[in-house]
């Protein structure tokens, strides 16, 4: 019962957040001087042409009226029509979402693998030079944001040692038999490992750039948490049973140390998703973020609104998911 109540409260505050965000974005992008419609028409267009097209997109009404119309549409699943692409916003946005989701999740996995290995190695070899080296690397990785890591990776593995692709999502000349936009996932399902390796070679650099700062956060937090756990009595007791250091870390300390790290990874993962906007631009990756920047530059108001709301839904959804995971993984909460 308490669980249901807390979920309801969460959903209510989420709704308030989304509504507030929608209002702010709606107002902010309509303060833009200059009519976006004017940019779409050829130079010789008359005032009447502009007015007609404005009426078509509802831009001649007051901001308040426009908001009501837009919000009414959203509640029925209609996010309006993109001004530049002249297609439904929902269709456009959902078409790009898989690319961004695949990139973010791949980045998350890379971050967990690198961060986890760094933390475990640092704990196993604590007090040695290796641990010191890991700490320094973590510090640097943490201080420099994904945008710069992306540029560094472009230089290192795109130019100096060109082993990965630094532009696009897939080699354009390849024939894609896919029915969904989840290329990475579908290539595995269809056992097309030739396509899969091409997609991974394109995704790896942007995913790694996104992953580096998060891996440092995971590495630092998990290592700290592990170090505290290693002093606890049940870890000592496990040693007396005849287990070696590695086993003790993995089975006794890690499950308990991972839990506090998990809650923080949730918030950090939303930051990572936010980072896809510029990273996709940097690597010309055809995802939601790249589309968002184009939408802003083209002043495609309905599209901007749609993308912003979608990002907000993803962010709040991730946070909700992490909280549920935490409850599910923590035996104390599970049986309470």
């Amino acid at each position: 019962m308490r669980l249901l109540q807390s979920v309801l409260v969460r959903l209510a505050t989420t709704a308030v957040t989304l509504f507030g965000l929608a209002v702010i974005v709606f107002v902010v992008i309509r303060v833009v001087p200059g009519n976006p419609v004017a940019m779409m028409l050829p130079p010789g267009a008359t005032e009447a042409d502009v007015a007609r097209l404005s009426a078509l997109y509802g831009l001649d009404k007051s901001i308040f009226q426009q908001f009501l119309i837009w919000a009414g549409g959203v509640l029925q699943g209609d996010f309006g029509t993109s001004i530049t692409a002249r297609q439904p916003v929902l269709e456009l946005v959902l078409g790009r979402l898989p690319a961004t989701l695949e990139l973010s999740i791949m980045a998350l996995i890379i971050a967990i693998v690198i961060g986890g290995l760094a933390a475990l190695t640092g704990t196993r070899l604590r007090g040695t030079r290796v641990e010191g080296g890991i700490d320094v690397a973590n510090g640097v990785a943490l201080s420099v944001p994904d945008f710069l890591w992306g540029l560094v990776l472009i230089l290192l593995f795109g130019v100096l040692m060109p082993v990965f692709h630094i532009s696009g999502r897939v080699t354009p000349s390849l024939e894609l038999p896919f029915v969904t936009e989840f290329y990475l996932f579908e290539s595995v399902v269809r056992l097309r490992f030739d396509l899969w390796s091409d997609i991974v070679a394109h995704m790896f650099m942007p995913a790694l750039a996104l992953a580096i700062p998060l891996s440092a956060i995971i590495g630092q937090l998990l290592k700290q948490s592990l170090k505290e756990t290693m002093h606890l009595d049940y870890v000592t007791l496990s040693r007396t049973k005849g287990y070696g250091e590695t086993h003790v870390i993995l089975r006794e300390a890690l499950p308990n140390a991972a839990l506090p790290t998990l809650t923080l990874v949730g918030v950090q993962f939303t930051f990572l998703i936010g980072g896809t906007v510029i990273i996709e631009r940097l690597f010309s990756y055809e995802g939601l973020g790249n589309m968002a920047i184009d939408a802003v530059i083209n002043r495609d108001l309905p599209l901007i609104q749609g993308i912003v709301i979608l990002f907000a839904v993803i962010f709040t959804g991730v946070n909700l998911f992490v909280d549920m995971m935490y409850a599910a993984l923590n035996p104390r909460l599970r049986h309470a």
Binding site: T13, V16, T17, L18, G20, L21, I24, V25, V28, I29, V31, V32, T270, I273, G274, G275, T276, V277, I278, G289, A292, I293, V296, I297, R299, I304, I307, V308, F311, A312, F315, T316
Partner: peptide, 22 residues
């Protein structure tokens, strides 16, 4: 706090690009 929540639900890079466009 409500404003902080709203801000946190918005990718900052997109936010800044949007603001500069405005």
């Amino acid at each position: 706090s409500r404003f902080i929540d709203i801000w946190m639900a918005f990718p900052p890079v997109l936010f800044s690009i949007l603001l500069i466009a405005v």
